[in-house]
Design a binder for these strands. Structure first.
Length: 501
RNA sequence: GGGCCGUUAGCUCAGCAGGUAGAGCACCUGACUCUUAAUCAGGGGGUCGCAGGUUCGAAUCCUGCACGGCCCA
């Protein structure tokens, strides 16, 4: 069995227990993180020491460089890495021998001592005391190359985080972005609310839902595909500025920009229209970029993206006409179909909406810099208010960056009669076999009948936004524990069985 | 769904004129009190993704399956 290293470490653990040393103690007083140490003491000159500045820190041992009676090692914590120096003279022979024998890379230790800079200028903690805080049983991945195997990184993200500093940094950026957005909205009077994830009618988007079983009521329920219709019910009820950040579920394909389980934020503002929401989007996203990077320009997969507001605005039908020469407003269904057919594209259904979506797919890639794609046709926008100047269009926009739809927004349709008609039109599509058609939701129509003020609504895909912010090529890179096919792992299974016995 | 590529030690990778496995890191033993991929000497560790087939002989060739990656729909 390829368990040699693990057995050696288990052996050390039983030796520790025999010595009455707990390999898994209860707490440690950590006064400084590695980042705080760097911030506070980075000004030291090479070889300078602050012997009276007693501090303590803790983290995972990443590397050990042993030189007989002294040793350098590196600790990693949430903030990064910090070097430590231990020698026999300072901790005594017994403690030093213990360190040499029982502390391995991968273990978690706490140290107390003072800061100094080595001859070569690296900030280091001079160890006067240390405590083993957790003995690791499994070895760390290769210290130089880290963990390269993407499958392992997805399946055992904790190892990826330990081994690859950029991974922990990426998820820190995700956290920073999410908390910035919450702060940004809260400061502007928005209220964070919650809506159900278990839905009887999955609404607010065009997508196949997940079905699950509600035993208590003996019926099927759906996981939400979007929180939209419930958030608008908040507006009907009297909330004026709300948002919700959370998971949505869509039972569809997995790709570099699609995950069945993804995070979005939806924002609704009473008495606002889609122009207001465009301004909000621009401000929120570009100030987020500036907050994170100190500039409006970032690089995504080798392309410079400039978030400086205002963003370019283009109308969907004009853009498609310019790029493809077809007019999704004027041209007949037959003409659109013929155009697609010529290019070997067959829409799942020969509805106008599906054909428009296919045409858009052909040109989506051509938008790289932050752009508002505006005024989508009514056919593909069942929840958006009709355009005030052109009834064939809606007041809708999608922010597009690097060919990715980053979100979706409209002047919300609040006319209950028209909403009902749109639902009826969608119901026909559903009947015709369009699994993504919007479901009829009569309670939502009833809510609108009580009256919803004019409202602007906006949804942003958090994962895709974080992809851009972290220069990640795949949505899986920004989801800490992405969905990966289950695999029967014989080796793991065997280990677990032997562990149980 | 289709195409291409990958799966060898805990990790990163070699090995493919078919002749029963190799390096570095990690681990163990020893030397070394300012190193940073520390260094030096020695050692242990593998059902070569799974299942078939061809062959005297398969990590290597063929087929199927699983899982993953990239590209296309």
């Amino acid at each position: 069995m390829a368990q040699e290293i693990r057995n050696q470490k288990l052996q050390k653990i039983s030796e520790l227990r025999e010595m009455k040393v707990n390999p898994y103690p209860y707490r440690f007083e950590k006064t400084h993180s590695s980042g705080q140490i760097r911030e506070k003491f980075d000004h030291l000159n090479p070889s300078e020491a602050l012997e009276n500045e007693k501090i303590s820190t803790a983290g995972r041992v990443m590397t050990i460089r042993l030189h007989g009676r002294s040793c350098f090692f590196t600790l990693k914590d949430f903030d990064g890495r910090i070097q430590a120096y231990i020698k026999q003279d300072s901790v005594g022979e017994k403690a030093y021998e213990f360190f040499k024998k029982y502390v391995d890379t991968g273990d978690i230790v706490g140290i107390r001592g003072f800061p100094f800079k080595s001859k070569t200028g690296e900030l280091t903690i001079f160890v006067e005391e240390f405590q083993l805080l957790c003995k690791a049983v499994r070895p760390l991945p290769e210290k130089w190359h880290g963990l390269k195997d993407k499958e392992l990184a997805y399946r055992q993200r904790y190892v990826d985080m330990i081994a690859n500093d950029s991974t922990i940094e990426r998820f820190r950026t995700r956290y920073k972005a999410m908390s910035f957005i919450r702060r940004f909205l809260t400061e502007r009077g928005f209220v964070e609310v919650e809506t159900p994830i278990l839905n009887f009618i999955p609404g607010g988007g065009s997508a196949r839902p997940f079905v699950t079983r509600l035993e208590a009521l003996d019926c099927d329920v759906y996981l939400r595909i979007a929180p939209e219709l419930h958030l608008k019910r908040y507006i009907v009820g009297g909330f004026e500025k709300v948002f919700e950040m959370g998971k949505n579920f869509r039972n569809e394909g997995i790709s570099y920009k699609h995950s069945p389980e993804f995070t979005s934020i939806e924002i609704y503002q009473a008495y606002a229209d889609y122009n207001d929401m465009m301004e909000l989007t621009e401000q929120m996203i570009s100030s987020l970029v500036h907050y994170l990077f100190g500039t409006y320009k970032i690089t995504y997969q080798g392309t410079e993206i400039d978030f400086t507001p205002p963003w370019r605005r283009i109308r969907m039908h004009e853009f498609i006409k310019e790029k493809l020469g077809v007019d999704i407003l004027e041209d007949s269904d037959e003409k659109l179909y013929a155009f697609l057919k010529e290019r070997g594209i067959e829409p799942e259904l020969r509805t106008r909406g599906k054909m428009i979506e296919k045409l858009w797919d052909l040109v989506e890639d051509q938008i790289v810099q932050p752009t508002f794609l505006m005024d989508h046709p009514v056919d593909i926008s069942p929840l958006a208010k009709r355009h005030r100047q052109d009834p064939r269009l809606t007041e809708r926009f999608e922010p597009i960056i690097c060919g990715m739809e980053l979100g979706n927004a409209f002047s919300e349709l609040n006319d209950p009669q028209e909403q009902l008609e749109r639902f009826v039109a969608q119901a026909k599509l559903l009947e015709a076999g369009d699994k993504e058609a919007h479901r009829m939701d009569l309670d939502f129509v009833r809510a609108l009948e009580y009256g919803m003020p004019p409202t602007g609504g906006l949804g942003i895909g958090i994962d895709r936004l974080v992809m851009l912010l972290t220069d990640s090529p795949s949505i899986r890179d920004v989801i800490a524990f992405p969905l990966v096919s289950q695999r029967f792992d014989e080796a793991l299974d065997e280990e677990e069985r032997s562990a149980e016995s």
